[in-house]
Amino acid sequence: MATISREEVAHLARLARLAVTDAEIDLFAGQLDGILQAVARVGEVVADDIPPMSHSVPLVNVLREDVIKPSLTPAEALAGAPDAFENRFRVPQILAEEE
C-alpha cells in the first residue's frame, strides 16, 4: 500500500519542525516505507461500523473546584528556559521586520 517519497519525508519533517539533513531523508525514506507498509495491515480488518476508541478510561469533562492552590513562582517556572526576560519566556522574532 504505502510508498513514501523523499519529497514527502521532507514535507512531513517540515510540518513537524524538524530540520532534517539530506542524509537523514535518504535513511528515513527507506525505513518509513517499511514501517508504513507494516502498519497499513490495519486496513485488512473490516471495521466500517466499529466506533473508534481513543481511550480506555470512559471519563469525560473531569472538572475541579475553581480555587487557588499553591503553584510555581515565576522564577521556578522560568528556571529551565533557554532565555528569559522580565518574567517572560524570550523567543526569537516571529515576524520579519518588513512584515
Binding site: 532534517v20 537523514e24 518509513l32
Partner: peptide
C-alpha cells in the same frame, strides 16, 4: 524523528 514523522503522516 521517525515516530514523529510517521505520526504526522
Amino acid at each position: 524523528k521517525r515516530r514523529i514523522i510517521v505520526g504526522t503522516y
